[in-house]
Design a protein around this nucleic acid. Structure first.
Lengths: 169, 169
DNA sequence: CTCCATGCTTGCAATTTGCAACCGGTTGAG
DNA sequence: CTCAACCGGTTGCAAATTGCAAGCATGGAG
C-alpha cells in the first residue's frame, strides 16, 4: 500500500476515490450510456479513453466497491460491469455536476438535454432513476416507468433538431 | 493551447475543470475553512498541498473564473483569494460530495459534522450559505444569520467531545 | 480451420505530481 | 536603522501517472 489517506474529511476522501479525469466518465457511461462491457466503454464514448487507463480505472473502481465485474453467462470471454449501491448513490452528485456544467462551461446543446432533465426532475426523478439502475445493475425488481428511456429519447430528439449546430462532436 | 475539450458533455467539462485531486480541496478551504491567502491554504489544511501545486491550481482556477485574486489593501505583499459566483454555485455539489463521502468512505467523525449539517439542511440551507459566501467573497450585503459560524462551532463542539477518537488527524 | 471480437497487457514517450530548497520584496519588532 | 520573520510564490529534480500504439491469448462464428 502506497500511502494512507490525506485526511478524514469526507470531501477529501470522495476526491481520493473519484477525483481524476476518468473515473466519473466511466461511471457516467455505465450509468447513463448503458455501456456495460470493456469494448463499449472504450470505443463508444466521445472522450476516447485509452485502453490501459480504462483497465486501470475499472480495477480501481472495483477495488473501491464502486463497480462489480461478472462473467457473461454463455460468453466465456465477455465480462459485464455493473454499478453498485455506492455508485448508484452518485446519481445526485452527477446530476449536480451536469447542472453546474451546463451553466458554467461551454457544454453542447445536445448533450445538455439529459443533464437538464435530470436537474429539473430533482430528487424525485433521481430516486426513480436510481430505482431503475438497481433493477438494471443489481437485479432488483423492475420499476414502473423508465427514466433511462426518457433521457435517451430526449437526447435523440435534440440530435434530430435541424437548426442547432453541435459545438462538440 | 494544448488541446480542445474532450467532448461537449457537461459532466465531462465539469471534470475537465475540477477533476483532479486538489482543485476542489482549494475551493473547499476557501469556502468552508475561511482560508483566503496562499500561506493559509498551504499550511492550514490537513492534506498538505505542495506550494508549487497550490500555485498552479490557484492560477488555473483563476483562469477558469472559479476564483479571483486581489491585493490586500494596506499590505502590499499579501493577496486575497475569493470565490466567484461560479464557485459559490458549487455549494450543492460539495454538499453532495460530503454526504456521499460520509456514507461511503471512512470519514472521521469530527470532520463529518459539517458535512452532515450541510446535507441535512438541504437546498434551503445551501442557499442561505451561498448568500453568506456572496457577502464574504463578493462584497454583497450581509445576510441575517451565519451558517458559516454554525458549521464552525459544530465542528469545534465535535472536537471537544471526550469519548470519540479521531480516525484521521 | 480461418477470422474476427473479446478483455485486456506491454513498451515507451510525454506530462504531471510531490518534495525540498530557495528567492526577492515587505513588514513589524526592537 | 537593522534584521529576522513572513509574503506569495519559483526552481530543480525524481517519481508517478497519462497517453498512444501495438500486441496478445482466448473464444466463438462461419
Amino acid at each position: 500500500m502506497k500511502h494512507a489517506h490525506r485526511s478524514g474529511c469526507p470531501i477529501n476522501l470522495t476526491l481520493e476515490a473519484l477525483g481524476d479525469r476518468w473515473s466519473l466518465i466511466v461511471i457516467r457511461d455505465l450509468m447513463f450510456g448503458n455501456r456495460r462491457r470493456f469494448r463499449e466503454l472504450l470505443t463508444r464514448s466521445e472522450e476516447r479513453i485509452a485502453s490501459n487507463i480504462l483497465a486501470d480505472r475499472l480495477a480501481r473502481l472495483e477495488k473501491a466497491g464502486l463497480i462489480s465485474r461478472r462473467d457473461d453467462p454463455g460468453h466465456k470471454q465477455k465480462i459485464i460491469y455493473s454499478l453498485t449501491e455506492a455508485s448508484i448513490a452518485l446519481v445526485p452528485l452527477l446530476a449536480h455536476m451536469g447542472g453546474w456544467g451546463l451553466r458554467h462551461t461551454p457544454a453542447s446543446k445536445e448533450l445538455s438535454v439529459r443533464a437538464k432533465i435530470l436537474e429539473d426532475g430533482g430528487p424525485p426523478l433521481w430516486s426513480e432513476f436510481m430505482e431503475e439502475l438497481r433493477h438494471l445493475h443489481l437485479g432488483a425488481p423492475a420499476p414502473a416507468e423508465s427514466v433511462f428511456a426518457r433521457l435517451q429519447s430526449a437526447y435523440e430528439a435534440a440530435l434530430a433538431e435541424p437548426a442547432t449546430a453541435s459545438p462538440n462532436g
